[in-house]
Amino acid sequence: MGALLGVAVLGAGHMGADHVRRLDRQVSGARVVAVADPDTDRAKEAAAGIEGVLVHPDPVAALDTPGVEAVLVASPGEAHEEALLAAFARGLPVLCEKPLAPDAAGALRVVEAEAGLGRRLAQVGFMRRYDAEYARLKSLLDQGRLGRPLMLHCTHRNVSSPRDFTTDMLITSSVSHEIDAARWLLGQELTAVSVLCPRSSPGAPEGLDDPQFVVFETSGGALVDVEVFVNSGFGYQVRCEAVCAHGTARIGDGRTMVVTGEGGAVEEVPRDYLVRFADAYDREVRAWVDATRRGQVTGASAWDGYAAAAVAEAGVRARRGGVRQTVELAARPELYTTPGH
């Protein structure tokens, strides 16, 4: 497929720096041409040791770096819309970490801009679609061997939440992964949401409603429940069980190292998402690079990013108001034809 794909990475924080490393060391067929971050020292640290990389404080300027052929957006969510629209204006394919935009209105603007081009350029970084366990569950459900899916039971636990994490973000940031995974696994839209909040955990920062219990209804008559607990204190756990008409299937119980010593045994629990989903991120970026070099765009679309934002906003309304909320989606442009794909 010719020369290496030149990539500009926007954002050099925890996620962005990991993607710079991944593109340089784990993924063949690509090279990092530019790294952009307002904190140029952080950008320089992420790019250290990579020959020929230019560092920019301004993400839009980074897109005009000679040799840039594609963009990986890993900046904070509020910067995504500007970066995506700038990439579209230059005809550059984009892998954008979720969220597509901080709110549904911004995500819809991105969808409309891309639809106006008449071709897909954006892929949204919902990496669970590339996780081996999720892929096996998706294949099993698509085969229909267990009959019609009736329910998905999901668990999403973190060790602790960042200092700036808000109650709304339990849904808009954390549960957004389950929103996309449910749409993808079931091939159905999420049509309504209810949220219940128990008494907050003593480990939660003051004012943070944590944990939460979220229930989604789907267009195919299934139910999806999510326990989200971002200050569990012990580890990072993501699980999903599909309950179907003729059987069940559960993922997320994969065994890690067990250390046995005097008086007992201890099983390791991953501490964050970059450990649990390291292989999924590798697969996702590798697939994006390969597809981009072929002139294709695969994976979660901008429409999927918009749908996730719209469902999450309905979830926030449900929590704040204490009542079930329906999900209202804009008309789907012809560019995006299949729900959840």
Rank of each mutant, 00 (worst) to 15 (best):
E328S: 06
A70K: 04
G147N: 12
P162Y: 03
A107T: 10
E133W: 13
A312C: 03
A245E: 15
R271C: 09
R22P: 05
V275F: 08
E114L: 04
A74P: 09
V259S: 14
L152I: 03
V111L: 05
D64F: 06
L150E: 14
A222N: 09
E69S: 15
D131E: 11
L85G: 12
K44L: 08
A101M: 12
D39A: 12
G91H: 15
W288L: 05
E262W: 13
S173P: 06
A132T: 06
T292I: 06
E334P: 07
S139Y: 06
V266D: 02
A330R: 12
A307C: 03
L108V: 00
V60R: 03
R163L: 11
L185K: 04
M1V: 08
L92V: 11
R145W: 02
L5Q: 04
Q188A: 12
Q143C: 13
E189H: 06
K138W: 09
D41G: 09
V193I: 07
P333E: 04
G233H: 13
A135S: 15
F229L: 09
C96L: 14
R183Y: 01
L63C: 11
D24W: 09
Y281W: 12
G220C: 04
G2S: 01
N231T: 14
Q123I: 02
A249C: 10
D210I: 14
D180Q: 00
L335H: 07
F234R: 08
T326E: 14
L72M: 11
V285Y: 12
V7E: 13
R319Y: 00
R293N: 01
A310E: 10
T40S: 01
T298H: 07
A30E: 01
A192N: 11
D225V: 07
V32K: 01
G67M: 07
A312R: 01
T191D: 01
I171M: 04
V94D: 02
P270Q: 05
A3D: 12
G207E: 08
V110R: 01
E97K: 10
A34N: 02
A331K: 10
H19F: 12
R119F: 02
G77M: 05
V316P: 04
S174F: 01
A83F: 00
V175K: 00
C197K: 03
R183G: 05
A308H: 04
H14K: 08
A181Y: 00
F216M: 06
T191G: 00
L186S: 05
V269A: 05
S301I: 07
D225E: 04
E284W: 12
A222K: 00
A8E: 05
A330P: 15
S232N: 14
V94T: 13
R21E: 13
F216D: 00
A61L: 10
P202Q: 11
L170Y: 10
P339H: 01
V230R: 02
I251W: 08
V327H: 00
G6S: 06
G315H: 03
V110E: 06
R136D: 15
P102L: 02
A249S: 14
L84F: 07
R109A: 13
V193E: 09
T218N: 02
L196Q: 14
E284V: 03
L170N: 09
G147V: 12
D253V: 11
